[in-house]
Design a protein around this nucleic acid. Structure first.
Length: 436
RNA sequence: GCGAGCGUCGCCAAGUGGUUAAGGCAGCGGCUUGUGGUGCCGCCAUACGGGGGUUCGAAUCCCCUCGCUCGCCCCA
C-alpha cells in the first residue's frame, strides 16, 4: 500500500479520544487557576544548546533522543524534548524572575526519538508546573500537593507517590563515590547494563529493573544516609508537610531522576495500570538550572505529567467504575435532539429549525443524508439523543413535527409508542419541552 | 540502539499449499413493514502491508523490507 501514513510514534487524536483530552484539559486548567498559577506558552523549537546545557549533555535524552536539525540560517535547532528548560529560558529572557517568584504551568507536545511502546510515543504531551524563585520545603510540598489533588480531581485510582531526596551536588558527589566503591566490589553480580553505567551514571543503577541487581541493591548504602544534616532536615520538613496535607507517600531511596538538573526533592507518581512505563507524573527540585542557563542563582521546583499516560489510567478508572468521576469525564456527549428529515421541503425546513434550536442553546444533530427514515432512525438511536424530531413532507403539510422518544432516553423501555405532535412554528415550546 | 510477537475490506474477523478469499458491523442502493426505529434483497478485498524466492500451484513455506504491539534501554 502506498497510502501516506503519520510518522512512527506520532499519533492522531480522533474525535472520541480528543473528547477525553479536552475533559482532562479543562479540569487541569480550572485546577491551576484555583491554585493561582499562570499559564506560559513557549515555542516548540529551541536552540539545541538550551537543552544541551539545561538537561545535560551526558543524558540519554540529549545524547540520542532529540529531534535536531540545522535550519536554513545554519542554526542547530531542536524540537523540545521536555518543558522545563524552555520555561526557564523564557522566564530569563523576559525578565520574569526580577518580578518575584513565578508560579507557572504549561502544556503541549514534546518530542523524543524513542522506540514507541505502551504509554510512550515520539510526540507526547506533558502538562507541567514550575515554581521559580521559591526555596522553602513548603513549596516542594505545595507543588506535590498540586499534582496529587489534580489527579484526585480527575478520579484516577490506585496512584502511589514516591519521594526521595537527592541532596545537594556535594551530597551526591559523596554518595556517588561510596556507591561506586560498593558496587565495584560486587561488579560480578551486576547485569551488563548496570556494569556499563557504573562509570557513566552510577545513580541510575539504583532504579534498575533487573531482578538480580534489584536484590543486590537491597543492602547498598543509600543516598539518604549520606545526606548532610541540612539536606536531611529539609527532607524531614517536607515529609511533615505531606503528612499535614494527608497525602500518603512512600520513601524510595532508589528513586533518581534522569535529568541532570534535579537536586533535593525528587518524586514520582506511578500507576499499576500502565505496564512498563508506570510513571504518570515526575518531578523535583532543580535549584541549579536557572544559573546553568545563564541566570541568577534561583531555587526552583516543578513536575511534568504525561498526558498519554494520564489518559490511559483515566480510561482504566472509568471502566473499573462506570459511575465514578473518571467515567463522567470520559463520557460521550449526546445531542439533545436528533432531527430526522426527508423530502425536499422538509429538508429545508429541518435545516432552518436546526439552526434556530441551536441558537436557542440546544445541541441538535441534523441528519443530512436524505436517506430512508429507517436508516435515519438507526443513526438517531446511535447518537444517543433522547429525542428525535421527525419532519417529512406530511409533517410540513400539517405544520407539525413528530416528536419521538429514542432509545437514548431509556434503553430498557419500549419507546416506540411514545410519540407526539409538535407545532413547527412553536419552537420556544419545543425548547422548553426538551429542557426538562 | 537491542529483543519478542503480529500484519486478510473503514472496523472486528474466518481461512495454515489447491477451483470465484467466509461472516459480522459500518457504508451505499432498493423493497418491505397498515403503530416510519422491524424484516428482506443487492452492491462493497482479482485481493491477503510491500518486494523477491520456493512450488505445477501460496494469504498460507523461506528471505528482505516497511509498519504495528509489547519488553529492554530511557523517561512523563
Amino acid at each position: 500500500m502506498n497510502q501516506l501514513q503519520s510518522l512512527r510514534g506520532m499519533l492522531d487524536l480522533l474525535p472520541e479520544q480528543t473528547r477525553r483530552w479536552q475533559a482532562v484539559e479543562s479540569v487541569t486548567r480550572d485546577h491551576f487557576h484555583r491554585a493561582g498559577l499562570q499559564e506560559i506558552r513557549t515555542p516548540l523549537l529551541e536552540l539545541t544548546e538550551l537543552f544541551a546545557r539545561g538537561i545535560g549533555e551526558a543524558t540519554d535524552v540529549v545524547g540520542k533522543e532529540m529531534y535536531t536539525f540545522v535550519d536554513r540560517g545554519g542554526r542547530s535547532c531542536t524540537l523540545r524534548p521536555e518543558g522545563t528548560a524552555s520555561v526557564v529560558r523564557a522566564a530569563l529572557q523576559n525578565g520574569l524572575l526580577s518580578q518575584g517568584p513565578q508560579r507557572l504551568w504549561y502544556s503541549g507536545p514534546m518530542f523524543r526519538y524513542e522506540r514507541p511502546q505502551a504509554g510512550r510515543q515520539r510526540q507526547f504531551h506533558q502538562v507541567g508546573v514550575e515554581f521559580l524563585g521559591v526555596s522553602s520545603p513548603r513549596s516542594d510540598a505545595e507543588v506535590i500537593a498540586l499534582a496529587w489533588a489534580l489527579l484526585a480531581d480527575l478520579g484516577v485510582q490506585g496512584l502511589v507517590l514516591e519521594i526521595n531526596s537527592l541532596g545537594t551536588v556535594e551530597d551526591r558527589k559523596n554518595y556517588r563515590g561510596e556507591l561506586v566503591k560498593w558496587l565495584e566490589a560486587r561488579s560480578e553480580k551486576l547485569d551488563d547494563d548496570s556494569r556499563k553505567r557504573l562509570y557513566t551514571n552510577p545513580l541510575r543503577i539504583l532504579d534498575s529493573k533487573n531482578p538480580a541487581t534489584k536484590a543486590l541493591l537491597e543492602d547498598s548504602p543509600t543516598l539518604l544516609e549520606t545526606l548532610s544534616e541540612e539536606s536531611k532536615a529539609r527532607f524531614t520538613e517536607l515529609q511533615g508537610d505531606l503528612k499535614a496535607l494527608h497525602i500518603p507517600f512512600h520513601l524510595n531511596p532508589h528513586l533518581v531522576r534522569g535529568l541532570d538538573y534535579y537536586c533535593h526533592t525528587a518524586f514520582e507518581i506511578t500507576s499499576d495500570q500502565l505496564g512498563a512505563q508506570a510513571t504518570v507524573c515526575g518531578g523535583g527540585r532543580y535549584d541549579g538550572l536557572v544559573e546553568q542557563l545563564g541566570g541568577p542563582s534561583t531555587p526552583a521546583i516543578g513536575w511534568a505529567l504525561g498526558m498519554e499516560r494520564l489518559i490511559l489510567v483515566l480510561e482504566a478508572a472509568a471502566s473499573a467504575d462506570s459511575s465514578g468521576q473518571a467515567a463522567r469525564l470520559t463520557a460521550a456527549t449526546r445531542p439533545d435532539l436528533y432531527l430526522v428529515n426527508r423530502g425536499e421541503r422538509a429538508e429545508r425546513a429541518a435545516l432552518v429549525i436546526a439552526h434556530q434550536l441551536r441558537a436557542a442553546g440546544l445541541v441538535v444533530e441534523l441528519d443530512g443524508s436524505g436517506a430512508a427514515f429507517a436508516k435515519q432512525f438507526k443513526r438517531a438511536d446511535r447518537s444517543r439523543a433522547p429525542w428525535a424530531l421527525v419532519i417529512g413532507d406530511d409533517e410540513i403539510e400539517k405544520g407539525e413535527g413528530r416528536l419521538k422518544r429514542l432509545k437514548g432516553a431509556a434503553p430498557e423501555a419500549d419507546q416506540t409508542s411514545i410519540d407526539q405532535l409538535q407545532p413547527l412554528d412553536d419552537l420556544i415550546g419545543l425548547v422548553r419541552l426538551l429542557r426538562d
